[in-house]
């Protein structure tokens, strides 16, 4: 387990297909849509690797009341933004797991446990995990997710782990892999490739 990183948050509910975590206040950069994250399972025997596909701030009646009241004092604003618990909920799709130094691009045997700490996946691990494109089927297989945007964000993040000259070849190869899944929908493929180029 990478313990030098700051955890993104803790698991609040989960299944083998994914998990939801909560964090009190978001850091400027993490958690972020399309980011890879990792959480222990099976008492540390394995680590589930997730891809963050949704971020939401929980509903709050007081915040709504204050927003509509208009005439906020500076102290109330500072209280709302600094002190009040504004739990950010992030949802991650399971894209594989690691056990005994090997990556498996399938669902894990067990989900992580409630309140397990979720960490961002270390940049070296993002590189190693995404060298093979075997994690793509689990993304394409997810229902009701913004799959195309998620793919673009994840692949671009993976490309950043390469030296600059190798990034474009990586993305081209990724595009080819995606084409296998999107052969029946060329418009989607075209949009994805356009997203990878920007």
């Amino acid at each position: 387990m990478v313990v030098t990183q700051v955890p993104i948050g803790r698991v609040t509910r989960c299944s083998t297909r994914g998990f939801v975590g909560a964090v009190r206040l978001p850091e400027p950069d993490i958690p972020a849509f399309g980011g890879f994250c990792v959480v222990e399972t099976q008492h540390g025997q394995a680590r589930v690797i997730g891809l963050i596909y949704d971020l939401s701030i929980e509903d709050d009646e007081l915040a709504r009341q204050m927003a509509s009241a208009g005439d906020l004092s500076r102290e109330q604003l500072a209280d709302a933004q600094t002190n009040r618990q504004v739990p950010l909920e992030f949802s991650a799709l399971t894209v594989g797991f690691a056990r005994e130094g090997t990556y498996h691009y399938t669902l894990p045997p067990q989900p992580p446990l409630t309140l397990a700490e979720v960490y961002p996946l270390d940049v070296n691990e993002v590189h190693s995990f995404t060298e093979r494109f075997d994690f793509l089927p689990l993304i394409f297989g997810a229902d009701r997710l913004p799959v195309d945007d998620l793919l673009a964000a994840a692949l671009k993040q993976a490309s950043l782990t390469y030296p600059e000259k190798q990034r474009l070849p990586y993305l081209v190869q990724a595009g080819r892999e995606c084409a296998r899944f999107m052969a029946a929908d060329l418009n989607r493929l075209e949009n994805l490739i356009r997203s990878l180029q920007t």
């Binding site: 500076r74 102290e75 500072a78 209280d79 933004q81 600094t82």
Partner: peptide, 14 residues
């Protein structure tokens, strides 16, 4: 508990 220092702009102590 909360202590608001009204007029300072600083975040309250909670």
């Amino acid at each position: 508990s909360i202590l608001i220092e009204q007029g300072t702009g600083s975040a309250p102590r909670t």
